[in-house]
């Protein structure tokens, strides 16, 4: 394509090619730079780094497990809360609401994604945390307080608050992907169900069956976002590296550990340990996102095939 002869074409191609290449170079450089900085920590602690339960920078003891635990738990809470709501909104927008209503609602849901993370954090500290301390927490303890996850003192700052904030933040992302996926389901599938006397909801279940791998992709994408979310979490989770059952207790995640401590890490081994845990976060989110993309792509190719007959 580039060899249509003129010099202009060659220069033009070279310039845009370099720009495209830069994206790959950035990612390669991120990996290389972080890997290199993480070497001292990796050599010193080996694989045990990931399983250590103590994080004491002053004693040069670095175990990542509490942060991995916090990241996984807060993300799982977020998914549990967000998946039904996101699916509900997407179904409402695609299968039920008239177009005139669906558009503004979809836009408002998307606006939620435009609100910066630090704003969610602020809102979490001053609105959500008191709500949990005064109402939600006591309510849960009254009715399901026998569960270990709902025991203990409620300060309003902790794992549950972080999970709820995360749920709010990933809901617009999951919703918008699920919407696209549902819209891609051929109309004939709905008609087939309706023609058999299916109710609206039964028809919706058929549509969901068609869209299942795309929905899985949307959920995985939401998971990726939750795992990497930083500011909002660091502001409400309490930044305490502990592994306990109670969701009312403070905890910590990888991303919020980095946000809270990176600037103060002057000691070389401390910095290296932080970068190693950052590298773990990077690789995990990279893999999650790649996986999400493959799932969503598989839907696109499947529906294309269906459309062609």
């Amino acid at each position: 394509m580039a060899n249509t002869g003129t010099k202009g074409d060659k220069v033009f191609h070279a310039v845009v090619f370099a720009a495209a290449l830069s994206i790959i170079l950035i990612v390669a450089a991120v990996i290389a730079v972080m890997f290199q900085s993480a070497i001292p920590s990796m050599e010193r602690f080996g694989i045990g780094f990931l399983f250590g339960r103590e994080w004491k920078p002053a004693q040069e003891e670095f175990g990542a497990l509490p942060f991995i635990f916090g990241t996984v738990t807060s993300s799982v809470i977020a998914l549990i809360l967000s998946i039904p709501v996101s699916l509900g909104i997407a179904i409402f927008l695609v299968e039920q609401a008239p177009k005139k209503l669906a558009r503004p609602i979809a836009f408002m849901v998307e606006l939620l994604a435009a609100i910066p993370s630090v704003v969610y954090g602020l809102w979490g500290i001053f609105v959500l945390a008191p709500l949990i301390r005064e109402y939600i927490g006591p309510f849960l303890q009254t009715y399901v307080g026998f569960l270990p996850i709902f025991q203990g003192r409620i300060t309003g700052i902790g794992m549950l608050t972080a999970g709820i904030i995360l749920a709010l933040m990933i809901t617009p992302i999951i919703t918008s992907v699920v919407r696209d996926v549902l819209e891609a389901v051929p109309h004939t599938q709905r008609e087939a169900a309706l023609a058999l006397g299916a109710t609206k909801w039964e028809t919706t279940m058929i549509v969901l069956g068609n869209a299942s791998s795309g929905i899985a992709g949307a959920v995985v994408l939401g998971l990726g976002r939750a795992v990497g979310e930083t500011m909002a979490v660091t502001m409400v989770i309490g930044n305490s590296p502990q592994i306990v059952a109670s969701l009312f207790e403070p905890a910590n995640t990888i991303a919020s550990l980095l946000a809270a401590n990176f600037a103060e890490a002057t000691d070389e081994m401390y910095l290296s340990a932080l970068i190693e845990i950052g590298l773990v976060l990077f690789l995990v989110t990279f893999i999650i996102n790649a996986f999400a993309k493959l799932l969503i792509l598989s839907v696109a190719s499947k529906t294309n095939a269906a459309k062609q007959g």
Binding site: P186, T188, Q189, E191, A193, A195, G197, I206, N210, G309
Partner: peptide, 13 residues
Amino acid sequence: RRVGMVFQKSNPF
């Protein structure tokens, strides 16, 4: 349910 329908292009679930 009383009036079934078969479409131009087959549309199995």
